[in-house]
Design a protein around this nucleic acid. Structure first.
Lengths: 152, 152
DNA sequence: TGACTCATGTCAGCATTCTGACATAGGTTC
DNA sequence: GAACCTATGTCAGAATGCTGACATGAGTCA
């Protein structure tokens, strides 16, 4: 495995570990979503809509961590296939509030169950305390990364 | 911001937080690497080679969390532009050990500095204890996700 | 009112990554 | 040796996501 430890700090780099964990999670999600004919972004969009009905395209994009252009393409497909609906005219501004159709809700059910089992699997060896530690630490990382360092 | 809390557990989902943190890290890395004309995968490849000279294409792919086809395309570009070298003939098997050229090493230096500053920024508000907690917890998650549940 | 700024939806083109496929090198088992 | 399995490098095509660009709607400020 070419594992001669030559001043390697990849194993101890939290950035690398974060990427590795996220990659493993995504791979596991893709594995269970593929049989359902659903991609991770596809699932994320439906899950967001189930928990927050009426989100606009741009809001969904931010929630799924893709650009609004990417989400727009996905929404057009989901709308064409009858998973979501959007009004033809924006009630206010340009934002079009999106909602799940019964079909979309049904489709999400199995996917949601599968994904939750993945998340449970990920946490099997962690105590309650460790899980709340993880939550707090990850939120701190997110906050620090988003913060603009404009203080000279 | 459409934040009416309707049975939402996205904020408390560790899977979602993991994706959010990873996304923020990647965005921050892209931001500092773009001026250097380097993508995240591009940087990852060079960093891996600096720390473990002689890695093959497939090993680099696994280390950078992409497919070996993707890494192959990248390596061909890096080789053409003189950042890495590979022998024309495999010394054993088919694996071609890859190494950084002086130019590749120089190019990596600035990028490595920039990326380490991002990682430091990410950890600013975390204590030593929290950082080692994070390391242990992330490794547990990775282990659990990779483990095949074949035990009936 | 008019100019400015900002967020949004959307179209088009490009970049990146992936899946599928094939041939080859090495090891294992009989 | 032969059959088999696995890992590797590589080519080709498809899928996915991104950047650039434009027009529109709403709020701000003079």
């Amino acid at each position: 495995m070419s594992q001669e430890g030559v001043g390697v700090d990849l194993e101890t780099s939290l950035g690398y570990l974060l990427k590795e964990a996220s990659s493993a999670l995504r791979a596991a999600m893709e594995e269970v979503l593929r049989p359902l004919g659903m991609s991770v972004t596809h699932y994320s969009c439906l899950e967001l809509l189930a928990q927050r009905p009426g989100l606009s395209n741009s809001e969904l994009a931010r929630g799924a961590f893709v650009t609004r252009q990417t989400m727009n393409v996905l929404l057009q497909t989901l709308e064409r296939d009858g998973y979501v609906t959007r009004p033809a005219k924006a009630p206010v501004g340009k934002a079009l509030p999106t909602r799940l159709t019964p079909r979309g809700r049904r489709s999400l059910e199995k996917a949601s169950t599968a994904v939750r089992s993945i998340e449970a699997k990920m946490l099997t060896r962690l105590t309650e305390t460790e899980q709340s530690d993880a939550s707090r630490i990850l939120q701190s990382m997110i906050h620090s990364l988003h913060r603009d360092n404009k203080d000279a």
